[in-house]
Write a protein that binds this DNA or RNA. Structure first.
Lengths: 211, 211
DNA sequence: CCGATATTTCAGAAAACACTGAAAGTACGG
DNA sequence: CCGTACTTTCAGTGTTTTCTGAAATATCGG
């Protein structure tokens, strides 16, 4: 690997972090390299910069494409594939959250949905299923929330983040004015009607549970 | 492993997911088992339930403690360690986010902070550093946001999540009324004063950048 | 269709990681 | 202190993941 020190540090760090982020070292490094590169790179540039095998780069790029983290483009009279990392860092965050949700949340949600349809055969199972119900309720809510929030434009999202916890003050005001109408909830699949999980949507006018 | 089918599915699933969540299979399984268990368990219970070695359980429990995901307690006249998973699923989410931030965000933030203090020696490095600055700005903002939001009580958080994207409507109203005062920003460490990154706090009265 | 240039696939080598059993460590009651 | 009951550590082994080089596949201009 022969890179300016600043870039080298960055690339190596992403390599190490890669592991924690669910990709391997090379994938992390390739991404870091593309991220700081002023122009798109071809696979062989990456080989030279990182000192890994050509095939490894090929697989890494494939994975980054699966994660939607790199863009592939071409130049006239050149049939090599040029790769670059999109400029918009917010887009990266969205992509990352999206992909992790898909890999880490969704499978568990569907496992839980199925488990909740089983008939418990013992007190132990009954208790376990109750715990699963609570977990499902939470994850389902977060999943809905994400599907909802992802559609907010970046500008507004930034505004919201800068607001931080002061959002609660706005909320208090909203409480008083009763700004918001209740949201239509998607039908809860596979959960018996008597489930205590969606008491919250039974009548209009927000959530009187809250003081 | 000899568990009721419902529990077994759950435990095995968490074992598989463990990998994606940054812990190994055994740790995932132990946590799942504790989560559905009606009473606290001792290490040997876990050995019996999961069919893994005693030492593996010991290491797994140690890791779960490092993650703050299990509680250790004792019973009178019994010096074995009893472990349980806290009931409050929201607490679990908070813990998880907290720990992942600590492991996945904070190290990168400090690497970036250091990189931004270096003097670029070439156009390439100059460009790379600019990219790092943008990334740092984003991560720093998210980090601040999290530090801020984590202190909101669960009830309010639930309320906010149920509101989802409708929060923007409340925001629009807030825009008009100019409800929120600007937040005091912590001093940006290591970044030169001329950094364009905190234009936002220079004068009171919210963010006139936004239309 | 051929030769040149690019990319992908894949079997096996190398490296990283998880798990075990044996041994060492700790804490308590007598 | 000694023995017992319990927990932790760690070197070695087994398993999974990553990486490589060689071969296969694809695409283009002529």
């Amino acid at each position: 690997m022969n890179l300016p020190p600043l870039v080298q540090t960055f690339v190596l760090h992403f390599g190490e972090m890669g592991g924690r982020w669910g990709v391997n070292r090379t994938v992390g490094q390739i991404y870091a390299l593309l991220f700081v590169s002023p122009q798109p790179l071809v696979a062989d540039d990456i080989v030279d910069a990182l000192g890994v095998s050509r095939s490894n780069v090929s697989m890494g790029l494939k994975e980054l494409q699966a994660w939607n983290l790199v863009r592939l483009q071409h130049k006239p009279n050149d049939r090599r594939d040029y790769y670059s990392a999109p400029d918009d860092v917010w887009q990266i965050v969205r992509t990352l959250v999206e992909e992790r949700k898909k890999r880490e949340i969704d499978p568990t949600l569907s496992m839980l949905r199925e488990a909740l349809m089983e008939r418990p055969e013992s007190d132990y199972e009954r208790h376990a299923q109750e715990r699963m119900r609570v977990m499902h309720e939470l994850m389902d809510m977060m999943s809905d929330w994400y599907d909802d929030v992802r559609r907010i434009e970046t500008e507004r999202l930034v505004q919201l983040m800068k607001l931080g916890s002061r959002i609660t003050r706005v909320l208090e005001a909203a409480d008083r004015f009763n700004f918001m109408a209740p949201k239509k909830k998607k039908p809860t699949p596979g959960v018996a009607d008597d489930a205590s999980s969606d008491r919250r949507e039974q009548r209009p006018g927000g959530d009187p549970d809250e003081p």
